[in-house]
Amino acid sequence: MVDESTRKTLSSIPLLQTKAGPRDKELWLNRLKEEYQALIKYVQNNKEADNDWFRLESDKTGTYWFGKCWYVHNLLKYEFDLEFDIPVTYPTTAPELALPGLDGKTAKMYRGGKICLTDHFKPLWARNVPRFGIAHAMALGLGPWLAVEIPDLIEKGVITYQEKSEEADK
């Protein structure tokens, strides 16, 4: 199951109400508005907890999202590009988060760097349609995935620390 801290984080993200996909025009706007609000809140929470771990922005329609996420291991910060599309069937279908930089480096990943989420994620998401949004997907999907996979990958030497990215971030 999802660990204690994740649950705590999750509960502090406001839930969404509008059930609408990108094709639903006005309702999608409402949805997008709620997505943003949830994300803002999530980021604020993270900042307050000194646990900021990603940057995210979308295109004008709010259907393509991209940004960065990072993980600190042994006092070193490892940073990865993040991108994903809002599927047409959203929010019934969860967005498929992808880390293209890690494509082919780990088994827990689909082609194109889409991460394999835990077994728990999908049923949890399905149960919470339409209340979960992008912020939830981030907290529930990518966060734990990074926490599990990155130290393992570093251990195996698949990924190495890159000074530059850190400096760029700083």
């Binding site: 025009k25 706007l29 997008l32 508005k33 609000q37 803002i40 980021v43 900042k47 995210l56």
Partner: peptide, 30 residues
């Protein structure tokens, strides 16, 4: 037009989001 205003609002929220993301994290000892 309601939708345009809505798009405005979206833009504003996106900006807020960026602002929130870019605001320095509270320097407290975890």
């Amino acid at each position: 037009m309601a939708p345009s205003t809505d798009w405005e609002e979206i833009k504003r929220l996106a900006a807020d989001f960026q602002k929130a993301q870019l605001s320095s994290t509270a320097q407290r000892l975890s």
